[in-house]
Design a protein around this nucleic acid. Structure first.
Lengths: 348, 348
DNA sequence: GGCCATAAGGCATACGTATACGCATATATG
DNA sequence: CATATATGCGTATACGTATGCCTTATGGCC
């Protein structure tokens, strides 16, 4: 032992040693009921002894099932390289673990919108299905999704699970989360709540969050003020710029709901530059709970998404898709994480 | 077009349409020189038209080469879930891109040290080789590495590329980086430099960084003070605890070199709690340049590793290994990123 | 004892590609 | 003009597994 065998053992080797045929080995190792317990145990013992492992390529070729999923991150317009949204990296952890738990292999790849990722994976039998992750202009994205659907590709995407969504979509309850954020700020006595983030149909997730905020405000009898909404995509710079715009507009505000933590962090920088104190002058709440959120000064209150649930639900939905028994759409709950950026005056 | 074909086209379909045999199709698409230009172009045109793509499983099975690499993160003792070292996530970006550029598929997986990951991938022909990423006790790790080597598994790991390292290893020049950090602090006039991080053989990378610091100090005629070195693994909590220990010891210090940014961030929190100003009382420098490093107050000076180079070198080394032409070991340079946590008094 | 159901496993084959050979035809060489 | 050489391609087969179908043994039942 320890030395390298001349060649990897095959199911034929096991069969010979066990005194059975190769198909019986295959059946035994896959747990078919038509192999007697005694035979199966004998085969398993021999397989273990020879350090046998099923050849994935042969298995996938024959069964036409790879038990592999491809995870595609894609970046709308990558300003530089290596800048991956930290939120999606957190998701990666969840998905990876979920795949591990189910014995699925996970391929990952970063794509640009323009690439022909819709062909590469399923057609070549690399993967049984795709998981699509990425913020980006939904209207651009949609064309690709339609192609995927037409092509019969199995996929799930993370996003806003509205009615007009294309293909199976899993996402957080963004409207509910927006309400949560709004109610929290309102409960602190804030009344002039600004929203930093795109609020149009190009970015449905952000739009939903804004909708939730407006609902919460409406419930308290407050009408949303358009002057308090500033567009921003999810990046620190964008948040900084948006907050500056907001300040420049001159409309008074005592709270900010940022559509992502990165936007919030940029906004905090702008507020500090403007001499505004947090949470004294302005309370601020972000979205995503990225690792950096607890490291800011003050630490950032935010909305945490259900990462664990996300991985499970994505994989559930995808596997169902592959097995041709589509699952009904479903959204995930969110949780408020209160930190000092929205602390009441007594709690700082 | 747009409708779903009854079944995916195979190389036989292409062959039939092109009036050649299947092997000729295979040769043409792989660019073999023994197919005439005219024939090849005809075949390529038909393949494109049918949206043909080579079946990965059949191809890998026949050629015994999967053109796939498995990336294994592993966590020594995972306190909870979902906490991945951000540094390794940055590495992921680099590796992914590099794989994409070379047409390699990338499998990823999180492992516990105890699992039998040494068997799962190469033996089953899922991947041609492994990339191992993870901080952890090297002495524990080493046993696994030895098994891999004995087993004839192709792999590269990220780590300290010393002489006694097991298997092909790629890493930063940690000694040089430590020197860089030390020289920077010395150039600011700091003389009592503390090091937060393990400095024993269990964590060779950290030990190398400490060695580099000591070299820089020695070059300035300063002897290292054991009272100024405190063990810490790479986590924010550990950094916090280590800094408290350092302060409690009472030995004066005017600078800290933390073995990782997470340690540094924890230490900054402890310094703030102790009423010490940064960089006024204590200059602090981290290691890794994780995204959060630029978001701390003040922003953290740190050592940036060559991520792009890391991906390239890892893959180069691994592919060479697979092709049985081992590459000589090699280390990567690092760069100092100066931010305000070590700013001179005039620059802050 | 004949008949049918069930269990256990063998036989043949298919999955789709890549490659070692062999066989023509065309070109060069003496 | 006969023999070496290269070019371009077809023939046959291997890669290792999974599965439909068939055979045999066994037991139950009337």
């Amino acid at each position: 032992m320890g030395r390298q065998p001349s060649s990897k053992p095959t199911s034929f080797d096991i069969a010979y040693l066990a005194g059975v045929s190769q198909p019986t080995v295959s059946r035994a190792l896959r747990g078919s009921r038509s192999v007697s317990l005694a035979t199966r145990q004998r085969i398993e013992a021999i397989a273990r002894e020879l350090n046998y492992s099923v050849d994935k390529n042969a298995s996938s070729l024959r069964s036409q099932r790879s038990n592999t999923i491809a995870l595609l991150f894609f970046e709308d317009r990558t300003p530089d390289e290596s800048n991956i949204n930290p939120f999606f990296l957190a998701m990666l952890g969840s998905i990876t673990r979920q795949c591990g738990a189910r014995g699925l292999d996970l391929l990952i790849s970063f794509q640009k919108m323009e690439d022909d990722w819709h062909v590469r994976y399923q057609d070549s039998h690399r993967a049984d299905g795709l998981i699509l992750l990425g913020y980006g202009d939904y209207t651009l994205y949609a064309r690709r999704l339609t192609e995927l659907v037409d092509h019969g590709t199995h996929f799930v995407r993370w996003g806003s699970a509205g009615e007009d969504t294309i293909g199976p979509t899993v996402g957080s309850d963004n409207v509910g989360a927006g309400r949560l954020a709004g109610e929290h700020l309102l409960s602190l006595g804030r009344r002039r709540i600004a929203f930093l983030g795109q609020a149009d149909e190009h970015y449905p997730e952000f739009a939903d969050r804004y909708t939730g905020l407006c609902q919460a405000m409406a419930a308290s009898g407050i009408a949303p003020d358009p002057a308090l909404q500033v567009d921003a995509l999810t990046a620190e710079d964008a948040g900084h710029a948006a907050a500056r715009t907001l300040i420049a507009r001159g409309a008074p505000f005592d709270a900010i709901f940022a559509a992502s933590d990165l936007i919030a962090i940029g906004a905090m920088r702008a507020l500090a530059e403007a001499g505004l104190s947090i949470p004294g002058d302005v309370a601020i709440i972000g979205f995503d709970d990225i690792p950096a959120a607890s490291l800011t000064t003050p630490p950032l209150t935010t909305i945490m998404q259900d990462m664990k649930g996300a991985g499970e639900l994505l994989i559930d939905t995808l596997v169902a898709q592959v097995e041709d028994r589509p699952l009904p759409p479903c959204t995930l709950g969110t949780r408020l994480v209160v930190r000092r950026s929205t602390a009441g005056w007594g709690q700082g």
